[in-house]
């Protein structure tokens, strides 16, 4: 389930909201997709929280292979 991509979850959430707002579904189906919608919303929120913050810079070793190292901006960054 956590394999769902953020974009997909958000898109599905938007679809569900629109579907529900039309009000044409019966109660069972409404509740069913409501639950799915809540799940999508939770996935989105979770993805927003858990996405890692990482800044790396690539360097090359002698054999020309790329290697990632943590990047520290060379100049003092006011932000």
């Amino acid at each position: 389930m956590s394999e769902i991509k953020f974009e997909k979850a958000l898109k599905r959430l938007e679809e569900i909201v629109e579907e529900l707002e039309k009000g044409e579904l019966d109660l069972d189906r409404s509740l069913q997709i409501f639950e799915e919608g809540i799940k999508m919303s939770r996935i989105c929120s979770k993805k927003l929280q858990e996405a890692e913050k990482k800044i790396e810079i690539l360097t090359k070793n002698e054999s020309g292979k790329l290697k990632a190292e943590l990047f520290e901006p060379s100049e003092d960054d006011a932000s």
Binding site: L13, E14, I16, V17, L20, G23, S30, G37, I38, S41
Partner: peptide
């Protein structure tokens, strides 16, 4: 945006009920 979608979701179902 997600918060507002969630609100609309809940409202829509409450309306239905």
């Amino acid at each position: 945006n997600i918060t507002s979608l969630e609100k609309r979701l809940i409202n829509a179902v409450q309306n239905k009920v």
